[in-house]
Write a protein that binds this DNA or RNA. Sequence first.
DNA 1: CACTTCCCCTGCAAGC
DNA 2: TGCTTGCAGGGGAAGT
Length: 291
Amino acid sequence: MPELPEVEVTRRRIAARLVGRRIAGVRTSPASYVFLTPPTLLKRRLRGRAVVEIERRGKYLLARLDDKSSLVLHLGMTGQLFSGDVPSLRLLSATAAAALPPKAQRHFRPDTHTHLQLVFQDAGPRVYFRDVRRFGKLLWLAPGESHERLERLGVDALVLRGKDLFAATRGRHTSIKALLLDQAVVAGVGNIYADEALHLARVRPSRSAARVTKQECAALVGALRHVLKRSIATGGSSISDFIAPDGRRGRYQRGRLVYARAGEACATCRTPIRRAVVAQRGTHFCPACQR
DNA sequence: CACTTCCCCTGCAAGC
DNA sequence: TGCTTGCAGGGGAAGT
């Protein structure tokens, strides 16, 4: 479940393996809804281009190309962006890795879940986009062109201010958690960090957004920034599939306070962490600390 | 218009 | 042991 920290870690580490390199060839999986730009067109647009820089907008990555066009990528739920010098053992689940013949484990070989493969003129390590559940997205943008998915994004969670959130909550008849997950309000927050920030700010996820006070909004924004920055610093959360472009897993999952800790004692008051469904998502909170 | 439900997909774990 | 079932959730489309 890549959220802002995982996408930012991906951005930083793929940049070193992508910027300045010229694409000589492109291979894709068969057409599917992963491709907002059809594979044939995508190949035509990318071949011959050099990567200038990698930008992040919410959970989207944009690779700026030397003709001012862009390759947009969303990792979805299980997306992985990495280069081919990463041992394949790191990328696959333990059972899938065990099923591979020993020789095949040394280097990654594109499989059915590999939707994009970039080959470079320098003949160095290839870059792959792999996504088992195909919730990810690939999109090519002409120079100056945008896309409604990007246009719709609200303020980046790292830039958000308390008063922004407070203003966004007024008159909203939905839960504060649903609001935090709404990418049109705050860009980059997903299920893990919403739960963690709500816990730190001592706000119950199911609380009506309109009933969250100005002070609590300020606390929430501070908590959000804290957990997001902490996670980036520790390489993101690798609870299920996330892996950084260099093959390393994140470590933030070790420091999480509530997410996927139902039944465990709250770090503050020892009350068992409760799990409920809020905004159609598994939601974890301390029933004593969070009001 | 605001909000909720459904659904895309696959791997894995729990239950029978 | 092996099958079926349920669950994970980003986010857009469709429904209320």
